[in-house]
Design a binder for these strands. Structure first.
Lengths: 216, 216
DNA sequence: ACCGAAGTGGAGGGAAGTCGTCCACTAGCT
DNA sequence: AGCTAGTGGACGACTTCCCTCCACTTCGGT
């Protein structure tokens, strides 16, 4: 999707395609994979027609965005793995960076609709699994270092993040419930006092919750 | 909404009303405040007509559910406050209980649509603030006990949970972003190894992520 | 310069899904 | 037994989104 066009694709077309992908990534991240196609087109500065010319339907777009994102993350993860010597540090960096780079979408894609769309695609699957492999290395490594609690797996972390960064639409009752409990457990530990890392910014107070305005 | 009907309301009508509220709570929690009214009616075992008779429109229902939930939580919180001597323990209990009792909705209600609906209602507002007061007590108390990291506020926790239990639809860029970063920070601390609480269940692995099926 | 192919945008037909009303009918209360 | 509150679900109006279609613009090679 990002590599082998049958025909080289004209310069401006290429640019538009990228803009669409970028816009879609942002918008999907913010509002889920069900936003009107037109909104994406507008954000990308193109007409719906162009959008549909490049991506036959919504599913194709979702797939493309997913691929694009997985690729970025995978590249990041590998770069980190190469640079960092401590697995714990690597893990930490990966997670933090994921937030900044809106990995959100990527894991967040686990949004029922998107899930169904991506589920069948073997390419997406493959990429996802590669990422999980790297993540798993980090996890095991960090645990060997004694920095990461031994009772979590790569899945825990993936879920924890997917859930935190976006909602985890309840699905499989059992797993989902347990996952929720564990996340809470982890977070509670994260909250309990001890020489941990300092949090960025300032404490968010009850007042800060109010100024949640509109923009539409 | 839960207290002073103008007319006593007939026995079965009362029952239906409660069932509707219960169903709505569950469904809203699972799928957000935009689900078709009919779905709620069906889940409650009544016809749409009945639903509309009791709640003029969607907003009224959302409001009622919110009130109902806030009330429950407030009662719970106060009960806990009375029973528990340690603020940290109280906080812990409140948070865990919130998951089980689907406080979800309640904080989760912060879902754009719902937010707008509830924003204006002073009654809802009042309840919410009362809850925050109790929560704030817990927080300060737990911090005084040295059990809770001193650099978080009641807002942090509210956001952390609202976000974790349901998605936090990005809104105010600045606050939301900072909040996200802090949540991550907290979770990372929660993840770092140390004599913390044991997590329930077993580690969730990468494989566990797959069996996410449909049901529709 | 020029021209043909590639690319573009957005109006609009049509499908899907919701809302909330309306009313014939049922079941509580006295 | 009778009166009235309460019930359910069919239904028409409406909204929202999808994606096609095609007249028009732009690119890029000669």
């Amino acid at each position: 999707m990002t590599a082998d066009p049958e025909t080289p694709l004209r310069a401006d077309a290429r640019r538009n395609r990228d803009q669409i992908l970028a816009a879609a990534r942002t918008i999907f991240a913010a509002s889920g994979p069900e936003v009107p196609m037109e909104e994406i087109a507008r954000a990308a500065g193109v007409g719906v027609g162009t959008l549909y010319r490049r991506f036959p339907d919504r599913d194709a777009l979702v797939r493309a965005v997913a691929m694009d994102n997985f690729e970025r993350v995978l590249i990041d993860a590998r770069a980190i793995a190469a640079e960092e010597t401590s697995s714990w540090r690597a893990l930490e960096r990966l997670l933090r960076q994921s937030v900044e780079l809106q990995l959100v979408v990527q894991l967040a894609m686990v949004s029922h609709r998107a899930l169904v769309i991506l589920k069948g695609d073997p390419e997406v699957r493959r990429l996802r699994d590669e990422i999980l492999v790297v993540l798993d290395d980090f996890v095991r490594g960090a645990q060997a270092e004694g920095k990461l609690r031994p009772d979590v797996g790569a899945g825990d972390i993936a879920i924890l993040f997917a859930t935190l960064l976006r909602q985890m639409r309840a699905k499989v009752p059992e797993v989902a419930e347990m996952a929720a409990r564990r996340c809470v457990g982890i977070m509670i530990d994260g909250l309990s006092a001890r020489p941990g890392t300092a949090l960025p910014g300032r404490p968010i107070t009850a007042e800060d919750l109010d100024p949640v305005d509109e923009h539409s």
